[in-house]
Design a protein around this nucleic acid. Structure first.
Lengths: 152, 152
DNA sequence: AGACGTTAGTTGTATATACATTGATTGTAT
DNA sequence: ATACAATCAATGTATATACAACTAACGTCT
């Protein structure tokens, strides 16, 4: 047994609300971290980039969305999304085209390559997500929130 | 009505699990954003910094924790926490001292000033958190998750 | 006692994201 | 028509965070 005995000390926040919100932050951190590593290693994209590609793929249009809509979905600030789309464009996963009725607007369109990447990456994504949730359910502080995802 | 009619388009992810996880990401994003703005404006600290100060304040010791423990609680990488603690130290909200039994270890100790800041900032934190959750419950995609925080 | 592997924390470096500003386009009011 | 406010995206800039390498201290083994 370690000498300093780093028994994880109790951190009991004053209210259940604060505890739960902190639990959400921790769950989000650990799982998105795991997703990021897996997606980056196996498919060369980040979680944000996957989220963008998935939003485009599963949108009800033809795989194109306004920048601001994408920003809300991921979620990301508009400026950050602009750069994210630039990265995706550079690697050929999306393309930009102007909105025909409002030339201020820009649509981001997923390419065939982009669709292939999403199709392949989704297996990784769902797998890691499920495993990570299962792992997190071992933490008593996170378990109640994890339950939310288990319910039908 | 706006001309381009930015009716938010449907983005229907393939499985409920994916939808729910994306909902968690969106909820975390919007609310932590609101918390960040409010805490920064009214108390000059970020959400991460508040989380660190709160963890120290409500730990069962005398307001001191190991760096790694803090990193897990916030959550943050160890290197990021090192810099965060440096910021807090620079503004006099925490102090560092070596663990007497293991000189590798470093405790971060909250100061009286730090405790005052937490005490004041907590009102803002809880208030904004509650308001933000209430606002988010209007979004049908987020509502189920928000319910998790309403339950006793 | 000395060597080795492990652990805790810090620092160099890179980058994704946020904030503020700018440029371009649109709609509206005068 | 012209001016003006609003909207959408891109870009300049700042910074918090992540990753990797490093230093210091500890424990163990021989």
């Amino acid at each position: 047994m370690p000498p300093t005995s780093p028994r994880s000390p109790r951190i009991e926040l004053p209210s259940a609300l604060e505890s739960r919100w902190q639990a959400l932050r921790r769950l989000k951190g650990t799982i998105d971290d795991a997703l990021d590593r897996a997606l980056q290693a196996e498919h060369g994209i980040s979680v944000s980039e996957y989220a963008a590609l998935a939003a485009l793929t599963y949108s009800d249009g033809g795989g194109h969305l306004r920048q601001q809509v994408l920003a809300d979905a991921i979620p990301l600030q508009q400026s950050s999304l602009s750069r994210l789309v630039s990265r995706l464009e550079r690697t050929g996963l999306t393309e930009r085209f102007h909105c025909p009725t409002d030339r201020r607007g820009v649509y981001t369109q997923i390419t065939d390559r982009g669709r292939e990447v999403v199709a392949a990456a989704r297996a990784t994504y769902v797998d890691v997500l499920e495993r990570s949730l299962a792992a997190a359910s071992g933490d008593p502080e996170l378990a109640p929130l994890v339950e939310h995802f288990r319910r039908t």
